[in-house]
Nucleic acid binder design. Sequence first.
DNA 1: GATGAATGAGGCTTCATTCAT
DNA 2: TATGAATGAAGCCTCATTCAT
Lengths: 200, 200, 200, 200
Amino acid sequence: MIKKSVRQPRQERSTITKQKIIDAGYALFSEVGYYGTNTAEIAKRAGVSTGIVYGYFSDKRDILVCVLEIYLKKVVEPLFKTFKKLTAPIAVEDIVPIVIDEVIKIHKTNSKIHEALHSLSGSDEAVNAKFMALEDKLTLEISDILISLGISEQNINEKVHFSMGILQDFAHEFIYDKHEYINYVYMRNMVKNTIVNLFK
Amino acid sequence: MIKKSVRQPRQERSTITKQKIIDAGYALFSEVGYYGTNTAEIAKRAGVSTGIVYGYFSDKRDILVCVLEIYLKKVVEPLFKTFKKLTAPIAVEDIVPIVIDEVIKIHKTNSKIHEALHSLSGSDEAVNAKFMALEDKLTLEISDILISLGISEQNINEKVHFSMGILQDFAHEFIYDKHEYINYVYMRNMVKNTIVNLFK
Amino acid sequence: MIKKSVRQPRQERSTITKQKIIDAGYALFSEVGYYGTNTAEIAKRAGVSTGIVYGYFSDKRDILVCVLEIYLKKVVEPLFKTFKKLTAPIAVEDIVPIVIDEVIKIHKTNSKIHEALHSLSGSDEAVNAKFMALEDKLTLEISDILISLGISEQNINEKVHFSMGILQDFAHEFIYDKHEYINYVYMRNMVKNTIVNLFK
Amino acid sequence: MIKKSVRQPRQERSTITKQKIIDAGYALFSEVGYYGTNTAEIAKRAGVSTGIVYGYFSDKRDILVCVLEIYLKKVVEPLFKTFKKLTAPIAVEDIVPIVIDEVIKIHKTNSKIHEALHSLSGSDEAVNAKFMALEDKLTLEISDILISLGISEQNINEKVHFSMGILQDFAHEFIYDKHEYINYVYMRNMVKNTIVNLFK
DNA sequence: GATGAATGAGGCTTCATTCAT
DNA sequence: TATGAATGAAGCCTCATTCAT
């Protein structure tokens, strides 16, 4: 049998179509998850035929991987931008609130797709690897930036990693405002102080 | 339309059969996730026929819900037991390490099923509600216990909730030992100190 | 993912259903060939649902293989029966006409399925192997029988194999009566004499 | 409905393009059969776009028919050339070996495409008709040649036809050398003697 | 003429669920 | 209760063919 090759966009139209499919996948995976989405629906939402989807992607999972990559960029880039704007000397007290806001903002825009994609980590090795790589990249590069800004490099990886976990948890909870018995303003302060203390 | 009613096990044998199905579901959902498991396989693993599964459960999702309940019990009970053993006056420095170990232990036994079930929170409202209820129960009851043990009740919910998030994150990372650049012993200490400081 | 296992018929009904599917496949492959048949059509012709087809066969090709095996039996058995009836001493002149008739009879009943199956030899290794095995079996076993009946064993394999080729060709042509310029009665005689001469 | 007319190549370039497509079809049908080949792959192999294929051919089957015609020429022409070289008086003993070699040579170059095309005879009437016509042409014209060379015309068609069958079978077996228990040198001699005897 | 993107019907297969026994 | 055969809707993907450029 003949192996099929995925189209490498040559025409302008190609690029647009591929993007439309990715966008549709992004939207649908966000809304109803990977298993709640079928390829016909993706095509329909993208305004294309079912067949052409397989002109650009080898299979449904391939769409997922593309969506994942888009998502990862949406997370990584604004965060790094925030850090790269900083100049020495820095005051941790001032930076942490900025980062908290940034993380919340990122979560606000992407929480649904994050859940949809992250939930596949357990069953899809490639997805898992990409999430791992994201964590690694964030931890190590932010650590580097902080060191270059004069923060002590003592166990910096652990501190950054730990902080990231806290921030993510908080952002998630904050935007869903899940528990009525939680005062999120107070909690935000708790998060801030905890992180600030780590880097003192 | 006549609604089919799901069997209420009255006999001993019935209860055993139902339990076997739940166990099989538990095992398979852990191993390959909800979408990677089909009902025929559950029946086979349970050593029963496919048909009888629908004698005990209204549908596949119903098995999921039962598995979820089992899981929740497995998480809640040992944790409460740990806390209920405590007697006033307590020294936070002594208790936190115990709780850390307990949470790690729970995670070790249940991490796969946790992932499998939790990943459905985004797409299944009932699952999501149960996870929420778990968090609520844990937060509020542990807060009560701590208050009864003499811990200041000032923002206790936030403190407990925040601590739980940290503990979960850490336990997850710890058992997977995911990142080579992380010194988990150091991190464990960081977790401990952070939590201890909250309650001082 | 869980691997699917093909049903091993346990109930009476099972065996019947499986047979119905094989029969339907046999009929359809005969009529419109393997590629002209789809699984839905097989199921319909068998009077069963599409799904159950995959309860008995791993895929469409698996049906083909079963049909092939049935076909091979239909060819081999009557031919061997014919030879096994013979008792020494034999007169080649008397036997060849009998065999010619037998081969024609077999062809008459099976020519369409033979074409359908044989045409896949070129693209399906398993099918090819089975046809090869058929040829081998026929050649070697018939040779043995003939030797036991007193025929000289000098180059018996080549003689039998060559004769079989001639017989097949002739039977095929004879039943289709393809060419008006051919006198098939005369040709039949030519075939007979040719074979008789080989074994003299 | 307006019927689309297939391009009639008038320009040199057109002819070349059409030929490239036929060649690609020829190659692919040989390698993976008609059903294992798709038009996109034919176009790719031919170095043209998928669309233009339908400028030269009405559909995929049309390519097949063209390939078939090429094939038939490749078979017929060298065989006739061989016969046309002969001059009276001829000695059958001398000619048969030459023809055997010629048929083997033709088979060697074309066996794969032969299988691929011939396997469609059963399901495609036009293909079947062309193969029939080939047989007719070969039988009748070779018969004529032989008569003109002084061979007795008694049942000449049957003799030629029968011989052709034998030759084809043998050539096929010979080039694949399929059965280890067959001495192909001996068999070749058997084929030769059988045919020679027919014409004596 | 030529390109290659796009179409969409149709094929194969899975699986939650029901039914006859 | 229990069995496991049966159902059929629905999902993924292919590919001959058409169309916009």
